[in-house]
């Protein structure tokens, strides 16, 4: 093993970290909004709307993310004239926004199930108590349902964020120079695939370790009444592939 080379690789790959995190967090943020909407649709009690949300989740969880990325980037490129007429082309022209769109649509599907689980875990007596105290509608949601649901969903949502950080590596396929993209580029210059991919792997491990710690801290901060030893038990869930 050539440690000077690996250290140099490490330093060069670090320059891709901002883009990796940018892609992950932007899509997680947009995805959370989408997921919330989908979860509410699933629980709306209106058959048609429930079906739409269900179909959405089925399609986006049932196809590989790589196919979705190709479809959005190269596939929609085939319809450039139409998209230009609609004024959407400036958006689809950029590989960055195509990557964000694909990742957002994807995490929206997975996260909606997590949020639904969180919402369903809110104990009904709490809702009853709130109603007895005169709360209803949005106030009830904001003060009682939402905070409890968030606390419940946080560990699973943490895993989802980790999965998204990993999923950003696929954006390298559509010319994004994040960590994996830079690694591929460096390999083309040095032809030393194994060393470079090992270093890239270490970078992802460090990132994900840091994010796991942050989420644990958040969990601790959100549960002042519990304050038991935090447990973000290694949960392995469906990854985005």
């Amino acid at each position: 093993m050539d440690f000077t080379f690996m250290w140099e690789t490490f330093r060069q790959l670090l320059t891709g970290v901002p883009l990796t995190l940018n892609l992950a967090f932007t899509s997680v943020a947009f995805g959370a909004v989408l997921a919330m909407m989908l979860a509410l649709m699933r629980m709306s009690g209106i058959a048609v709307i429930e079906m739409i949300a269900k179909a959405y989740v089925f399609v986006f969880r049932g196809t590989p993310l790589l196919v979705q990325i190709f479809l959005i980037y190269y596939g929609l490129g085939q319809f450039r004239p139409t998209l230009q007429e609609l004024g959407l082309w400036t958006f689809f022209r950029e590989p960055y926004w195509c990557a964000i769109l694909a990742l957002t649509l994807n995490t929206g599907a997975y996260a909606s199930e997590i949020i639904r689980g969180g919402l369903q875990s809110v104990p009904y007596p709490q809702v009853e108590a709130a109603k007895a105290a005169g709360m209803s509608g949005f106030l009830l949601f904001r003060r009682i349902v939402f905070p409890i649901a968030v606390r419940q969903a946080l560990p699973a949502y943490g895993s989802e964020i980790i999965l998204m950080v990993k999923a950003t590596s696929l954006a390298s396929i559509i010319t994004m120079m994040e960590v994996t993209g830079l690694a591929a580029k460096m390999i083309s210059q040095t032809f030393r695939a194994v060393e470079i991919f090992v270093v890239a792997g270490v970078i992802y491990l460090i990132l994900n370790f840091a994010i796991t710690r942050l989420i644990m801290a958040l969990e601790w901060w959100l549960s002042p009444h519990l304050r038991r030893p935090p447990s973000i038990e290694p949960r392995i869930e469906a990854a985005h592939v």
């Binding site: 190269y74 490129g77 085939q78 450039r80 022209r93 950029e94 590989p95």
Partner: peptide, 11 residues
């Protein structure tokens, strides 16, 4: 092939 497509797509 991919950069051909992206030239045609104006990217």
């Amino acid at each position: 092939e991919q950069h051909d497509l992206d030239l045609a797509a104006g990217r």
